[in-house]
Amino acid sequence: MNLDIQNLRRVAGVSALAVTAIQTVTAAVAIPRQRRDYADGAWGPGLAAVAITGAALGTGDPVRRWTTAALTTAWAARLEHLMLGRLRGKDTEDDRYTDFLAGSSTAAVIGKVFVTQAVSQLLVSAPTQVAAASTLPKGRRRLLFPLGVAIMVTGAVVEGVADRQKDTYSAQPREERPSVLDTGLWAWSRHPNYFGDSLFWDGAYVAAAASPPAGWTFPAPIAMNYFLIYATGAKRTETKMQDRPGYRDYQKRVSFFFPWPGKHA
């Protein structure tokens, strides 16, 4: 058994405190302003806080702890820059939150948004927490660590490039740009940014699974992929974009989530 149970309890406990603090501050700012969508800005920092906690307090392999923390923090910093730009660019709350929370009391909003997100952050980061308290084995299984790092980097690059392409498209005057972004990575997947995000967290799981105990945290990447595809990501975006001119044709030509050569228009 290469898992330090006592250390894992410490890492998990402090991680829970860090995530709770971030969500509490966000809720305190967001609710009075009727901007519950500020929760989007707390997602990356919460996950980075868990990774840094594991790196600082864990007793597992130090190279893996700090590599994971560095990659997660870089991923979170880029996402936070993107989220803050979008939140500051709007004077009103995102319709997703307004519709979802219509008629909800303050207590219900806290539970539906901020508590749910805190629990999700702790679930998604479970592989990182377990890995922080685990040593690497001496056999071939330890190679899952560099493989996972490679997957994380690839996912971060895909997500970053996709978001940049989307921002470049959105910056064009509406009357001059195509009705649908279908070039670059968007010619291979209708949601390459979400795909890159999922790849990043799949990689985090693979890197952690180099230690056998962390292999049992497979519900974490499953949950993240569910969030990105069904709960808050791609499927929800599809519904929103359904009536945009040219989008139904785009759906016929380009893969939904996993990149695949598209059909020519």
Score class of each variant (00 low, 15 high):
Glu175Met: 12
Glu176Met: 09
Glu176Ser: 15
Arg177Ile: 09
Arg177Asn: 10
Pro178Ile: 13
Pro178Asn: 10
Val180Pro: 06
Leu181Gln: 12
Leu181His: 08
Leu181Ser: 09
Asp182Arg: 14
Thr183Pro: 11
Thr183Ile: 05
Thr183Gln: 13
Thr183Leu: 02
Gly184Leu: 05
Gly184Tyr: 09
Gly184Phe: 10
Gly184Ser: 09
Leu185Tyr: 08
Ala187His: 08
Trp188Met: 09
Ser189Gly: 10
Ser189His: 04
Ser189Glu: 09
Arg190Tyr: 11
Arg190Thr: 12
Arg190Gly: 03
His191Leu: 00
Pro192Lys: 05
Pro192Gln: 02
Asn193Pro: 03
Gly196Ile: 06
Gly196Tyr: 12
Asp197Leu: 00
Ser198Val: 13
Leu199Met: 13
Phe200Trp: 04
Phe200Gln: 07
Phe200Asp: 00
Phe200Ala: 09
Trp201Cys: 07
Trp201Ser: 02
Asp202Thr: 13
Ala204Arg: 01
Ala204Tyr: 00
Tyr205Asp: 11
Val206Trp: 00
Val206Thr: 04
Ala207Gln: 07
Ala207Thr: 05
Ala207Phe: 03
Ala207Asn: 07
Ala208Tyr: 00
Ala208Ser: 06
Ala208Leu: 00
Ala209Trp: 00
Ala210Arg: 04
Ala210Cys: 03
Ser211Glu: 10
Ser211Asn: 07
Pro212Thr: 05
Pro212Ser: 09
Pro213Val: 06
Pro213Gly: 03
Pro213Ser: 04
Pro213Asn: 06
Ala214Lys: 05
Gly215Lys: 01
Thr217Leu: 09
Phe218Val: 14
Phe218Glu: 02
Pro219Thr: 12
Pro219Cys: 14
Ala220Tyr: 08
Pro221Met: 12
Pro221Ala: 08
Ile222Ser: 12
Ile222Cys: 09
Ala223Ile: 13
Ala223Leu: 15
Ala223Lys: 14
Met224Ala: 07
Met224Thr: 11
Tyr226Arg: 12
Tyr226Leu: 10
Tyr226Asn: 09
Tyr226Lys: 02
Phe227Thr: 03
Phe227Met: 13
Phe227His: 10
Leu228Glu: 10
Leu228Tyr: 12
Leu228Gly: 08
Ile229Asn: 09
Tyr230Asn: 13
Ala231Arg: 14
Ala231Ile: 09
Thr232Lys: 07
Thr232Gln: 06
Thr232Val: 14
Gly233Ala: 01
Gly233Thr: 00
Arg236His: 11
Thr237Glu: 03
Thr237Ala: 10
Thr237Gln: 15
Glu238Phe: 08
Glu238His: 15
Glu238Trp: 13
Glu238Tyr: 10
Glu238Lys: 04
Thr239Tyr: 02
Thr239His: 09
Met241Asn: 14
Asp243Gly: 00
Asp243Lys: 12
Arg244Glu: 14
Arg244His: 13
Pro245Trp: 08
Pro245Val: 07
Pro245Thr: 08
Pro245Leu: 08
Gly246Val: 05
Tyr247Arg: 07
Arg248Tyr: 00
Asp249Thr: 14
Asp249Asn: 07
Asp249Cys: 03
Tyr250Asn: 04
Tyr250Gln: 05
Tyr250Met: 02
Lys252Gln: 12
Lys252Val: 03
Arg253Phe: 04
Arg253Lys: 15
Val254Ala: 02
Ser255Met: 01
Phe256Met: 14
Phe256Pro: 00
Phe256Trp: 14
Phe257Gly: 07
Phe257Gln: 00
Phe257Val: 04
Pro259Glu: 05
Pro259Ser: 03
Trp260Ala: 07
Trp260Thr: 08
